[in-house]
Amino acid sequence: MPVRIWRKPLDAEKIKVKKAEVHILKNQCKGCGFCIEFCPKQVLETSDELNIKGSHPPKIVDETKCALCGFCTAVCPDFAIFTIEKDCKEGC
């Protein structure tokens, strides 16, 4: 077994991990499921909720897992989901 050496980065105190806000515009969703399927962090899952189009929009499982990669924003054919960096000026 190789020895695993863990060390704390020197600038760990200065660097803040960005936190994400995932926004779902439920009524624009047609329910294709791309955002759920191709999210690298499994942030989303299908909801039981029906929107005005009769589709099941995604729901957020765990927003803290979102790495802000923006793939869901880009791959959504219906402009129904986007992520932004959380405003943490006053603490998150």
Binding site: Q28, K30, C32, G33, A74, C76, P77, D78, F79
Partner: peptide, 16 residues
């Protein structure tokens, strides 16, 4: 909006 394209159509991604 919404556009006329079907659920999961690539056209929406191209527009995006």
């Amino acid at each position: 909006m919404p556009h006329i394209w079907c659920e999961g159509c690539g056209n929406g991604i191209i527009l995006n």
